[in-house]
Every structure is written in C-alpha cells, then in structure tokens.
C-alpha cells in the first residue's frame, strides 16, 4: 500500500487548501454586499450614531482580515457566531437541521445508488434492447425535469390523488424511525429520481466502453456467460468512473436539496438557507455555504480516493 497513502495524503491536503480558499470567497462575498450588518440590524430608520455604536459593539470597525480570522477560528471549533434574526447560536440552529438533511440525502442515496448501478448493469447487458431504450429515455426525462417540478408531480400522484404519502414532510426530533422514513419518502424519491438517472447512464457507458477490450473477448472465449462477463470482468474495471459519478451525485444530494426541501417544507439546511437569505441573516448564510462547500470537497475527496483504491496497479504495486 506504500504507493497509495502518499497519494491520499496529497489529495487530503489539497482538499483542505480548497476549503480555505472557499471560506475566503464566502466571507469576501458577504463583505462585498452593500451596507453592513449593523445597518441591517437597525434598519433604514436608524441614526448614524446608533449604527456607529452597534458597529463598535460588534467589532465591525476592525479590518476585515482580522474579522475573517476570528470567524474562521470560531468555525474550526464549531462556533459560527450568533444569528442576527433571533440571537441564538448558529451552530445550535444548524446542527439538528443538518442532521435532517443528512437523513434525507442518506435515504435518497440508499434508494438511488443500488438502483442506478443495477439498472446501469442491466442496460449494458441488454444494450440496444427495448429495456435499454426505455431506461435511457426515462432517465433523460428525469435529468431534464427540474427537481421542484418532479416534486410537485409526485405530490399530485402520491399525496393528492392516492394519498399514499404526506405532501408536507414535517419531521420532529423525537419521531419514530418508521414514521420519519414514511414522511421523508416523497422528497427522497424526488431527489433519487434525478441522481439515479445520471449514475445509471454513467454506469452503462463505463461498462460498454470496456466491452471491446481483449480481456472481455477472452472471457467470452473461456465460455463465461454474458451476465458474468459484465459483473465479473467489466464492472470491476469500470469502478473508477462509477465511483466518481456516485460521489459527485451524493454531494449533489446534500447541497442540491434546497429546492426540494422548500417544496416539501422539510426542516433541513436548505430551508434554513432560504429563510436566512430572505432575512439577511449573514452568519447563518455563511455557515450554510461553508457546510455545503465542505460536503462537496469531502465527496470529491472520497471520489478521488475511491478511484485510486479501485485501481489494482496502485493497490498492488510491483
């Protein structure tokens, strides 16, 4: 494994550097907005003196790099400051919501990943058949429709006409697991539909790409049946691109929930982000963005490491 560890270490380091750059961009973007937090809190009618007094109190007169490092230092320890809207700690507000978002994304992933890889393998196995064509057409439809639209369609069919699932996914912290899954089902299916399509198409393409390889011909000439040719001989070599698209889609599941959470009024980070933007609650917005960025970077990292580990040349050096 000697060759793999330094590679992974390098990727980790790069991920940290990326996160640092992103934090600067997030902080800078808020700085660039017209007006500052003191003005936002006090509103249009505040006098110059009260604004100046609040600035002094909040430390806004200090140079921005000092405040950046203060904010970063806090963020590293899990302290994202205090919400402007209700003066509660940001971390305290964000924590349970982030857990909710993770739960929703996790459920969507549990549905979509096995489904996507299974369908992709089947589509590759029966390529150019009716099944393949239908699967491809449906996946194109799913990719091309925006999530909020899919969400409303699902609500129409499964909540209004059939009343199988609730249209509003209001979960509470001490809800039972079964109930929680039941209520989260529609948003999870919505998200799963979108990402399944991407992952399925990529799995199919990655496998078909390999079918012209000499070792696939060799497997056929050894009398290996079709299904085993795909699962045993093609799939292990197609893992790197599949891991990549799966990891990127998982990251998308977490960061792309904003719209779906709003449609289903699900108490996750996305909802909080939308609410905070309308209230101009900057500390919360900053924290949400940083969490989204960290998630994206983390999953990219997982994709890279996964691709490295799936390569036998790197796993078993000469």
């Amino acid at each position: 494994m000697g060759g793999v560890l330094p590679l992974i270490g390098k990727r980790l380091l790069l991920g940290l550097v990326t996160l640092l750059v992103v934090s600067i961009i997030i902080f800078g973007a808020v700085e660039l907005l017209p007006g500052d937090i003191a003005q936002q809190i006090l509103g249009q009618s505040a006098t110059e003196e009260t604004v100046a007094a609040l600035r002094e109190e909040l430390g806004l007169n200090r140079p921005s790099y000092v405040r950046y490092f203060e904010w970063l230092g806090g963020a590293v320890q899990g302290d994202f400051g205090v919400s402007l809207a209700n003066e509660r700690s940001v971390a305290e507000q964000l924590g349970p919501r982030f857990a909710n978002t993770l739960f929703l994304a996790g459920l969507a992933a549990l549905i979509s990943v096995p489904l996507a890889i299974g369908l992709g393998v089947l589509a590759a196995l029966y390529r150019n058949s009716v099944f393949d064509r239908v699967a491809n057409a449906l996946s194109l439809v799913a990719i091309s429709s925006p999530e909020f639209f899919l969400g409303y369609i699902l609500i129409v069919f499964f909540a209004v006409q059939n009343q199988m699932f609730p249209a509003i996914s209001n979960v509470t912290p001490n809800m039972e697991m079964g109930e929680r899954i039941y209520r989260t089902m529609l948003p999870a299916i919505t998200m799963a539909l979108v990402v399944t399509a991407y992952m399925m198409r990529m799995t199919r393409a990655a496998i078909i790409n390999l079918l012209a390889s000499p070792y696939i011909e060799m497997a056929r000439l050894k009398g290996v049946p079709n299904g085993k040719v795909i699962t045993r001989h093609a799939l292990p070599n197609a893992l790197a691109p599949i891991i990549n698209v799966v990891a990127l889609n998982l990251a998308y599941l977490i960061t792309g929930v904003v719209l779906v959470e709003v449609v289903f009024v699900y108490p996750g980070v996305g909802q909080l982000l939308v609410d905070s933007v309308t209230k101009r609650d900057f500390p919360v917005v900053q924290a949400c963005c940083l969490i989204f960025a960290a998630t994206f970077i983390l999953f990219n990292l997982i994709a890279d490491v996964g691709a490295i580990l799936s390569n036998p040349r790197l796993r078993h050096p000469k």
């Binding site: 390889s213 000499p214 070792y215 011909e217 060799m218 497997a219 056929r220 000439l221 050894k222 009398g223 290996v224 045993r232 001989h233 292990p236 070599n237 036998p312 040349r313």
Partner: peptide, 30 residues
C-alpha cells in the same frame, strides 16, 4: 465447449488478462 474443449491464446497477453483479477483466479475460472 469454449474454455473446456476449445481454448484460445490471444496475441497480447497483457491486454487479454483482466487487470482486476489475480492470474490464478482467471486460470481457475474455466
């Protein structure tokens, strides 16, 4: 018949062995 009664040896062994499996696992497959 393939692999059991008629077998094939390809031009490029490097390309015709599956890179993801050990030699002996590919050997015993047939």
């Amino acid at each position: 018949l393939r692999g059991s009664r008629i077998a094939y040896v390809a031009q490029s062994a490097a390309a015709s062995f599956n890179p993801a499996h050990k030699l002996i696992d590919q050997h015993t497959e047939s």
